[in-house]
Amino acid sequence: MTASSAPGFADRLRAFYLRSDAAKGYALLSPVMITMVVLLAAPLVMLILYSFWTQSGLSVDTTLTTARYQEVLGKQSYHDIFWRTIGTSSLVTLVTVGLAYPMAYYVAFGVKKYKFVWLILLTIPFWTSYLLRAFSWKVILGFNGVINSGLISAGLITEPLEFLLYNQSAVVITLAHAYAAFAILPIYVSLEKIDRTLLEAAADLGDSAWARFWRITFPLSLPGVLGAAVLIFVPTTGDYVTPQLVGGPTGQMIAYSIQVLFLKINDWPLGAALAMSAMAAVGILVVLFVTAMQLAVRQIR
């Protein structure tokens, strides 16, 4: 194309671009990368910064201080709500993964035809409005709700059961229902990937069906189980809608405290410090949990 003996800068740039896969890749990737840096990474960094600042009246004092963290750590009510949040999320994770595992196992190993129909059926609720699904549980569990009115009109009880709504178990049920698809898909994928001849080999070496499950299938599906657990545990610790709708005073979780600090009390630095402490604690717990599970499964021989 160019016959000039000393290629210009534009030509060299062009040659580099033609030659470099990485340059072409990053050129294509840059819009999404920039978007996510601006809309995700930058706000998170600012959130961290805020947690080291101080609210004074309507403005923010940007002198760095750890006072907000001391405030968060020193307040018993935050400790209480944090541990209640962890307890609720742990229960939700346990229930959801426990129910999803056999379901995913059935689709992976039991379903021969129309597997994709099962998968679509199991994922549709995931895409439908979470708010409305939480709302339907409020309708079902309510004082005058579906269960109580149903039981009364069936003549089984005379007074509505009060323990159904506005407590932790209502939160657990609602969240377990809401996060079902998060658990099923990763577990299903890890089960589906297992080479069936491994099971035949184990049978050939004398393992019973249970032993095969415990020694082959379960350890190999562990990445999916752990993935599912993290994918449920972490987002539910920050859930706002469900505790508000069905939690009542004893079912409140930490997102409510954060929301109050941000939208009602308008103490953003304190809200940021609370959010960051909670996230850090959740992160540490997740790492400990995953490590412990991996060590435990390594004991299976």
Partner: peptide, 22 residues
């Protein structure tokens, strides 16, 4: 692909700056 070093001449033309579609 483009050479890291050297040059390929196609019908007398150096090809380093010519994309495949030309």
């Amino acid at each position: 692909e483009f050479p890291t070093n050297g040059e390929i001449y196609i019908d007398g033309q150096p090809s380093a700056l010519i994309p495949s579609y030309k």
